[in-house]
Design a protein around this nucleic acid. Structure first.
Length: 362
RNA sequence: CGCGGGGUAGAGCAAUGGCAGCUCGCCAGGCCCAUAACCUGGAGGUUGUAGGUUCGAAUCCUACCCCCGCAA
């Protein structure tokens, strides 16, 4: 009930006929937006999502988050493999008023974008024209930006290029306090305690979290913008194309750690590449018959230290924690996972792999 | 049937047919102004499950359960 009251518009609904909206989306980001739209007058009549993909160790075909939600709520769903003439025809027959596109995954040709009376709107999780393209949220975290936002724009033939209807900024809070076991803290001398806890007390935002925040923000902004758009109260504002920047689709290889970067940069990578591909490095040891195994880095702390070690060198800190030298400073490995093994703490890992000390990660 | 690694003491790992061991943790004691350091001692195992081969199996064979990497 609370949720319904939040969207008072439902009760003030004008007697005008409801607009026919088609929603295009695939991953979690799109699902969050669809979820919010569904409890408004803008509930889509049809949902379009990318075809099922083989997922998981057994390559089982599985439905996208958007598909699952649509099925739960029994909204009509289509999954064209290609947006060709046949798919276009199907969409024309619906006679839609508006397309809403949020991380759909397939490129929509101009003929399709032109179908609805009120055009095709896109929700993009950045302050356009900054960070056009496939990975704006990752780019935001990698650049350590202090603010980001969501943009609603009218789609045209170029990627994230169309004129802007609305934009909402979001300040990035990197100050979410982690609840910590306080019993251990008072025992430490002040200076030591600050050093040991300094990096942990503040947990910076990850891509997964920012993704959710921006989706919610985008959905609210959309719900706010749509009535004005239908009433033709908004004049789309062209983007300043000179200021445009572009982001690429993230690939597995982007998660490979380059130890010649600073500890801060690697820490930003860790947060940017959540939940996929994560970050990893290669470990070669006698214990593995000199084979190279992949080592996934799950949780780290930055250690401020002057060292003259080669970047990638594994060493022990004064507190006997497992650490790796970076170009500048070092990283304490709090939680790691060796290929074929479960995630473990740096300390546990050390119990069985003491020879890791002084090896060089690549 | 997509490819591959793994399951051994509370944790992480050794042991490839012959007494199941190492590091950490845990318990007791010692040393110490003190300690997460150091020393001594101790507890803790049906080697994932079921069956088979063998004088003898963690190890070889068969089936099943569970975990993980690649791939997406």
């Amino acid at each position: 009930m609370d949720i319904l009251l939040k969207y008072g518009r439902i009760f003030n609904m004008t007697p005008k006929k409801q607009k026919k909206i088609v929603f295009f989306g695939t991953p979690e980001f799109a699902k969050i937006i669809l979820e919010k739209l569904m409890i408004t007058e803008f509930k889509p009549v049809i949902v379009v999502t990318a075809p099922d993909k083989p997922v998981g160790r057994k390559q089982i075909l599985s439905a996208s988050p958007v598909k699952q939600l649509a099925q739960e709520h029994k909204i009509k769903l289509i999954q064209p493999k290609l947006l060709n003439n046949a798919a276009g025809q199907e969409l024309i027959e619906i006679a839609p008023d508006l397309f809403i596109i949020a991380a759909y995954g397939l490129i929509l040709p101009q003929e399709i974008l032109n179908i609805p009376k009120f055009g095709s709107l896109n929700i993009h999780p950045s302050l356009l024209p900054k960070y056009r393209g496939a990975s704006p949220i990752q780019a935001t975290i990698l650049a350590n930006d202090q603010k980001t936002g969501t943009t609603i724009m009218l789609m045209d033939e170029k990627i994230d290029h169309g004129p802007i209807l609305a934009q909402q900024e979001l300040e990035i809070r990197n100050s979410k306090l982690e609840t910590r076991n306080k019993s251990k803290i008072p025992r430490l001398p002040d200076a030591l305690s600050r050093q040991a806890i300094g990096g942990q007390a503040i947990t910076k935002i990850t891509c997964t979290e920012l993704n959710i925040e921006l989706a919610i923000l985008g959905a609210d902004l959309l719900i706010d913008t749509l009535p004005k758009w239908f009433e033709k109260e908004i004049k789309p504002l062209p983007q300043d194309h000179k200021k445009a920047s572009f982001t690429r689709l993230i690939k597995k290889i982007h998660g490979k750690i380059v130890w010649r970067r600073s500890a801060e940069q690697i820490e930003q990578m860790l947060r940017a590449y959540q939940p996929w591909p994560g970050i990893y490095t290669n470990l070669t040891m006698k214990q593995f018959n000199n084979l190279t195994k992949k080592l996934k880095i799950i949780k780290i702390d930055i250690l401020e230290i002057d060292h003259n070690k080669q970047p990638g060198t594994v060493f022990l800190t004064k507190n006997k924690e497992l650490a790796v030298a970076c170009d500048k400073n070092a990283l304490i490995l709090k939680q790691i996972q060796l290929q074929g093994k479960k995630p473990t703490s740096g300390k546990s890992f050390l119990n069985g792999h003491q020879q890791i000390i002084n090896t060089i990660l690549s």
